[in-house]
Structure formats: C-alpha cells, structure tokens
C-alpha cells in the first residue's frame, strides 16, 4: 500500500492535464488496453436486454392491434362493442342477463362472469397458498434445524417443477372427489377445487421468495432481540418477519399474478361454466380458460376472435395493476422503516 500510493498520486494529475504522449509514456510497460472480447461481451449483453424488452413491447402491440377492430370495425361493432361486453345482454323476450355465449345463434359477450370467475379462483388460491407458503418459509428459515431445512427447502421448491397438467389431473380425479365428499358443494368441479389446485403452484413461489427474504435478514437482528431477553418466537414474529415483509409481500403479489394467469389447471378443474355467482361451490369459468379453449375454434378476424383478444388485454391490465400495487406496497413498507 504505502509503496504504491505515492506513485499513483503523481499519475492522477498527469492523466488529467498532460497531453496524450505524456500520459502514454507515464503508463507502466505491463499495462494493456482491455482485450477485444470485452467489447463483444458488452454488445452481446446489451442486445440480449434489448431483445427481451422488444419482445414484451411487441406482445403489447400485437394484443392492442388485434383488439383495435372492437373500436374501429363496423362489421365487428354490429355484433359487439366494449359497452355490450361490460353490461347485461338482452335478446328476444327474455330478461337482460349476464351471459357469455359467443357461439350461440345470437352471440352474447358479457365478460362479467369471466372476470368474477378469475377473481374468485385467484382469491381462493392466494388465500390458501399464501399463508401456507409464508408459514412454511418461517418454519424453514427460522425454526427448523439445519438438517431439516436442507430437506424442506428443495422439496417445497420441487413443487414448482410439477407440470400444471399433472396438478390438473390430480385436481380433477382426486381433489374434486375429496371436496365433494367433505363439503358436498353444488357442483363437483368448482372454484374451491380449482383454487386449491392453483394454490399448489403458488405455494413454492411464495415460499421461495419469503424464505429468501427471511434468510437475508441479518443474524445481528435476531441476536439483538435475543440479547434483550426476547424469546425465539417473539424474535421471529416481531423482528424477523417485519424486516422481511417487503420480500414476503412481493412473493404474495407474484403468486396472485401467477394464479391469475394460470390456465391448464383451471381448464381442467373449474368446471368452465360462465356463471355470475359469488358462490365458491359452483362451476366457474376464468378469462384464461376461455381464451385457451375458444381461440382454437374461432374464425380469424371474426367478432368473437377480437373479443378474445380484448379479454387478453383485460388480463394484461389486471396483471399490470397488481404489479403497480405491489410496488407501491413494498415502497411504503420501505419508507415507514426509513432506509435501506
């Protein structure tokens, strides 16, 4: 240190003020300019990042473009407009009803049953999955001995690797039968079955993020609390969990987004009836399941096709809103605690 610092302090003014030759002659002989591949690597990294951003933007543009005829095309608007999608449908003698029957002779496009269905199932999934994930994370990171932790963590995270179609089959054949026997709900396939099955996909997500957040709370927090004579449990509940709250909240919100967007499980386990009902015991159709099942059969460019893209746009808006809300929550936590 002491040997090199004087020479460095001599070089600094040289590099700033002296002309180029003087600067080069002052540099030691072993010094080389960085190798060329550094430049290549930098360009590669920039390109990759750009491709990711462009891909996202293109998805937005694509969905917007396919939704646009809903506002511009006379042909489409003769059958459906945004306001008819948002309201009850009337036809013939019958009273106005919330109806999603796009393939009937008089197509009906009320999206209310789909939105209610998506929300019902997502809320059930989060209400079941988030507490389980968070409690498992608290147990694993704070209570379990090290050997148990090393078994638990990879096992729970393995849940994330199960293909959703497998969970769907499990829900269809096993969970549906159990819930039917236990609670005897109206329909065999319903929002409870689909929500519980969905919770299996968000548990590992919530668990991983919450566990990481809890494990990265410095040990000095726990030490400070224990040294004050607080019990282990008091320390966990009043110091460790609050300190990890932003991470835990982020996990819950991501879980919400995952559940909202999940398709295969709800197609298989929800029953797929587009009913307007807040009951959890009836068959339920979600936005994602509707798009997945109807997109394959629809005529390209038809009103039905455009409406399905509009549903995609609604889903994107929901996801966007949840993310903004999550960031707000995390930010307000940070501000309240003042720093870091």
């Amino acid at each position: 240190m002491s040997a090199t610092s004087p020479s460095r302090s001599e070089q600094v003014p040289l590099a700033e003020s002296a002309p180029r030759e003087a600067r080069e002659s002052a540099a030691p002989a072993w010094r080389r300019s960085p190798p060329r591949w550094h430049g290549v690597a930098e360009a590669l990294i920039k390109t990759t990042a750009l491709v990711a951003i462009v891909a996202i933007v293109l998805i937005f543009v694509f969905i917007a473009a396919e939704t646009l005829p809903l506002f511009t095309s006379h042909e489409v608007r003769a059958e459906v407009t945004p306001s008819t999608m948002a309201w009850k449908q009337t036809w013939g003698e019958a009273a106005a009803r919330w109806s999603w029957q796009p393939a009937s002779e008089i197509p009906k496009y009320s999206i209310a049953p789909l939105i209610i269905g998506s929300l019902k199932i997502t809320v059930v999934a989060v209400l079941v999955g988030a507490p389980l994930g968070i409690l498992a994370a608290i147990f694993t990171s704070q209570v379990a001995p090290r050997w148990l932790r090393e078994i638990l963590k990879p096992t729970i995270e393995l849940l994330a690797g199960i293909p959703s179609v497998v969970i769907g089959v499990f829900a269809l054949l096993v969970m549906a039968t159990w819930t039917h026997r236990l609670f005897g709900l109206e329909h065999r396939l319903n929002a409870v079955v689909a929500g519980c099955a969905l919770s299996l996909t968000i548990i590992p997500l919530v668990f991983t993020l919450a566990e990481d957040a809890l494990s990265s709370v410095p040990k000095s927090f726990a030490d400070a609390s224990l040294a004050l004579g607080a019990s282990k449990m008091h320390t966990v509940l009043h110091v460790m969990v609050p300190a990890a709250l932003p991470g835990i909240a982020a996990g819950v919100v991501l879980g919400f987004g995952r559940a909202l967007g999940e398709t295969m499980i709800v197609v298989m386990a929800s029953g797929n009836a587009a009913l307007v009902s807040w009951s959890l015991g009836v068959s339920t159709r979600t936005i994602t399941a509707t798009i997945a099942q109807e997109m394959a059969e629809v005529v390209h460019g038809s009103p039905h096709y455009v409406v399905l893209f509009a549903l995609g746009a609604v889903l994107l808006l929901f996801a966007f809103a949840t993310n903004v809300l999550a960031m707000r929550i995390v930010e307000s936590f940070r501000r309240k605690r003042g720093g870091s």
């Binding site: 000095s220 927090f221 224990l226 004050l228 607080a230 009043h238």
Partner: peptide, 28 residues
C-alpha cells in the same frame, strides 16, 4: 438475558421507530 444485557459491536437498531426500539424489550 433479562438480567444480563448485551450491546453489540455494530449497533443494530430494529427497522422500527425510535420509541418502538426502546420499548421492544419491555413488550417482549
């Protein structure tokens, strides 16, 4: 630990208010 208190080398306030930090042990 209630009878023998300890203060560590690196001060580690909890991410709470000043009041809640001091009240922490009492509440615990």
């Amino acid at each position: 630990r209630r009878r023998v208190g300890m203060v560590f080398q690196r001060p580690q306030p909890f991410p709470k208010s000043i009041f809640d930090n001091v009240a922490y042990g009492l509440r615990a």
